[in-house]
Amino acid sequence: MRETLRYVASRLATTFLIVLGAMILLFALSALVPGDPATALLGPAATPEYVQRFIQEMGLDQPWYRRLFSFMGNVFVGNLGTDVLSGQPVTRIIANVLPYTFILTFSSIGLAVAFGVPLGCYAATHRGSLLDHLLAFVSVAFIAIPSFVIAIFLLLIFAIWLDWLPVMGAGEAGNWFDQAQRLILPTIALSVGWIGFIARLVRSSMLETMGENFIRLSRAYGLSNRLITYKYALKNACIPTLAVLGMGVGRLLGGAVLVEIVFSRPGLGRLMFDAISTRNFPVLQGTVLVVVLIFVLTNLLVDLSYAAIDPRIRRQGSR
């Protein structure tokens, strides 16, 4: 128990350091961007007086260390600055889209796990079967096809030809059924590649585990195939899969932008994309920071679940 607590504490400390590092890096990037941020934001038509006032308001005339500290101080109290275009606090803008991103990301990963893991187990235990070959072919295809292409096909088939599902937008606020319906196609579009990926990964780590001596021992004692596959081997095969899931969450958080555009859903990716194209630096900075934070927290969670699965990791953490 003490080992576990110490491990959790050390991982939390690392997480905090990573977030701190990300903040400094983000700040440095904003300082290193060529050109004067004020002119870039306000455009060439702005009068010199207006630019001057803007610089003072944003604190751009302060020395860099002071700006860094006020930036970090603000972040710690949850203030990510003000959107220069709408005048709204960035925190609120992000808070508005975050639920959509969360739901889409975790439903996609959830779907990918729900299908990828059993498929991978089946393929590993029925090596050379028709489904195994089919899976190898189809998963490579799905990994290779970009998710927005799948999104467009899904849109064509299910929304336009068959007219089964409403698609555009995230749905009416408060109407759970409508929102869930509109979540189906984007979730499928994002998860098919991951289903293939996870199935391949589970298959190969499962096959590797199946060759281990301790699995041979279980067989020598006549344990049932089900017990060997789903209890003994799957737990071992879980570990590399979890690592990939941690990465997957990070990718989907900011990387779902194209699917969000196809289905015109709000989301972090979309927000980031718009912020880049309008040079809206405070929004961009805030969004990236939130993505970093969620990504780091997800990976903390992955690390902690490793420790829950593998007792050898708990021990390493305490050293």
């Binding site: 281990e212 001596n213 301790f214 021992l217 279980s218 020598a220 737990k235 071992n236 007792p311 050898r312």
Partner: peptide
Amino acid sequence: KIAMVFQDPMTALNPLF
């Protein structure tokens, strides 16, 4: 009716259980 003891005890037990 038949049981077995393997050569290498270091790898004969599943590390996660």
